[in-house]
Design a protein around this nucleic acid. Structure first.
Lengths: 175, 175
DNA sequence: ACCTGAACACCGTTCAAGT
DNA sequence: ACCTGAACACCGTTCAAGT
């Protein structure tokens, strides 16, 4: 997956590596897409855990938390680009909603951060979802530029800091 | 492509539709990836043309130009999501650099816009590439949220306006 | 409950052969 | 210069059969 992308993931090859027949996976995943959905869900679980670990692993300072969390997101996005693409593919068949639940749990880390910024008065009040979307879009966009090869890996931190600086200046509560 | 994605694009099916044998495409594209590269290049050409048309089709007002161009980008990204994914896949074999040339020509529309904002004094001075990257990332991120189904189509315009408002407030030259 | 193995209808790629 | 058609090694999916 990490080496060759989701598209190159073959059920038959997987079965071969595990040492079972090519029909065996059918018992666990009715479809190839069902396996991809399960991988996407696990991706959201892991992303949420990494973001949460990033928030908890740093001090109380809002801006530092914001930058570290954004960096953690970009790290995940570039280190597991194919997985992230799967997670946002929007071609899921999952009807149980477990995938969406995992996604919302991951996104809630960002929402909580926004809440902190608002309660500290450095972010304008309003729906956290609204301001969170813009922040999320920016981070996601930076990740896309990196995986697309437009931005070098060693420029990431500076770009993240730049973007967050602009975001904070553009979103602070008017004096 | 638009209906079923790049992954479902089959050389044999294409040949069948055109009415030639399955070996014929080999004369024009040595590889499946070569065809995808050519499609990506054409995508950049078309994207550049649409962005330029958007800039030219509106008045001189900087903010209006910025919003319209961003909207045009998001429109392209959502209307041809699979093509955009291909354009930024970063798995290209193209050595001639024509793909990169087309990409830079498209991106130059945004750089020119940044230049206008700087010369009008509403954007802080500095390398246009630097501030342009943050803007580009934000727009690209919004497009990703829309194609990923996180943001509804009818919320796009408001989100774009919101993001650009924050960007401008966060990037204006200090008084 | 889970696995096997043959079968079917698809792929991309290669290559000798045609015009 | 371009196309054909057989061949090869892969797929995902289905299904009867086994334990």
């Amino acid at each position: 997956m990490r080496e060759r992308g989701a598209q190159a993931l073959s059920l038959r090859e997987l079965a071969r590596e595990v040492g079972v027949s090519h029909g065996a996976p059918r018992r666990h995943f009715p479809d190839r897409q069902a396996l991809l959905d399960a991988l996407a869900e696990q991706g959201f679980v892991r992303l949420g855990a990494e973001l949460r670990a990033s928030v908890d692993g740093v001090g109380e300072d809002f801006r530092e938390r914001l930058e570290k969390t954004a960096a953690a997101y970009v790290h995940f996005a570039t280190h597991d680009a194919a997985l992230l693409e799967l997670m946002f593919a929007g071609k899921h068949q999952d009807q149980s909603g477990e995938l969406n639940e995992a996604a919302e749990r991951a996104f809630s880390v960002i929402l909580d951060l926004i809440g902190q910024g608002q309660s500290e008065g450095v972010l304008e009040p309003g729906e956290p979802e609204r301001v969170g979307l813009v922040l999320f879009a920016t981070i996601q966009g930076i990740a896309a530029l990196v995986t697309g090869g437009i931005v070098d890996t060693d420029q990431v931190d500076a770009l993240v800091a730049d973007a967050i600086g602009r975001f904070l200046r553009g979103s602070r509560t008017p004096a």
